[in-house]
Simulated assay, not measured.
Amino acid sequence: MPELVLVTGGSGYIAGWCVVELLRRGYDVRTTVRAPGKERAVTDAVSTVVDPAGRLSFAVADLTADEGWDAALKGVDLVLHVASPLGAASDDPEALIAPARDGALRVLRAATEAGVRRVVLTSAANAASPSSYASEGVTDETLWTDPDDPTLIPYRRSKTLAERAAWDFMSGYDGPTELTTVLPGAVFGPVLTTANLGSVGIIARMVSGKMPGVPRIGLEVVDVRDLVDAHIRAMTAPGAAGQRFLATGEFVWMEDIARTLRDGLGEHGRTVSTRRLPDFAVRLAARFRDPSLREITPALGRRNRHSTEKARRVLGWEPRPAREAVLDCARSLIEHGAV
């Protein structure tokens, strides 16, 4: 009998690709949705790549509530806990932090009670980064972001606290279930649907001409297909149990991404602005015109990078170049009519 893998948050960008690749590799998949009625959209998205007939099932469970998680984990062999709250900063940081932290604990409690063999939790490279935004150099999984740093944006703090809570839970657990965490960078690549663009929304805005310029921000670009491959390798590799794995990609400036899009998309690239926005202009806009920019201003000019040597060595993981991920992402958005 094929092993059954639970993927949390099946309507999400990364989770959808997890479902696709698991089905491709012969697993049975169960995925969670937050409310009844969302199953059709997930099935339709997955069906654009692979036939899920008879091998994809659903469970209703929300990160903010206990109900549904025991049923979701029943009979499950392995878990990819990908779901995490996203969105703009709130006046109350706990609005983002609590669902991420408490949701991870709900999944782990249900998984350990069900005797699941291994849980792979999606964290973020921002949970293994220096507190100082001025830092340069290369860091690895041994570093933990300081969650008490007052300059941290809520999303970064939520990912750090959620992963910390997961490891703390496992340190007091004595049973067969294992935990592994994967820490991605900026996730681009093709989309299955335009219903939930997630991190690729920035590529859509650039291609559609809605960004008059690009801030001086560097991203470690990882293709969603390579990130999913890292998750599945972390789920199955014997040496991955109890480990953190950075799954970042090539470091590129947003200006480089803009030039890649402009040069590589033909007619569709003409609307992409490659003009670099001065740091002071971004800060002024964040202060007076667009409060949503406040979360990116601390990262202006930041050059810190992460090492993926551990994932390459232990998992045999090899990500594709950032240029390929960016262009495949843009072409997919164009094909889906998102730009």
Rank of each mutant, 00 (worst) to 15 (best):
L63V: 09
G242A: 01
D223W: 09
F188C: 04
C18N: 15
R25A: 05
S132L: 04
Y173Q: 07
A111F: 11
T274R: 00
D174K: 11
G242W: 04
I217C: 03
S123E: 03
D223C: 08
V191T: 13
R40H: 08
D28E: 13
T112N: 06
E39T: 07
Y27V: 01
A241T: 02
T8R: 00
Y13T: 05
R34Y: 00
M170C: 02
A338E: 13
G189N: 11
I202G: 02
L105G: 05
D279C: 00
P238S: 06
T180N: 08
I334Y: 02
A281V: 15
R331S: 05
A230C: 15
G68M: 08
V60C: 05
D328Q: 14
S135C: 07
W17G: 02
A237R: 14
A285G: 14
R40S: 14
R313E: 14
A134S: 15
R331K: 10
R331V: 00
A311W: 01
L4V: 12
T248K: 02
A286R: 05
R283Y: 07
S132R: 14
V228F: 10
D91L: 12
G16C: 10
V182D: 06
L143C: 03
E136G: 15
I202R: 10
I296N: 01
T31G: 05
T193W: 05
S332V: 08
A338W: 07
E67L: 05
V119L: 03
G172C: 08
L4T: 14
R331F: 04
C18F: 01
M235D: 03
V76R: 11
V214D: 08
A281P: 10
L108A: 11
L63N: 09
M235R: 05
L327A: 09
E267Q: 12
D146C: 08
K38E: 10
A72F: 10
V182S: 04
A234H: 01
V224T: 02
V7C: 11
E21S: 12
Y13R: 09
D290E: 13
S84F: 09
P190H: 11
C18G: 06
Y155L: 11
P190N: 04
R303W: 06
S123T: 06
L96V: 13
G26L: 07
P99D: 06
E335T: 14
A134F: 00
I202F: 14
A98H: 01
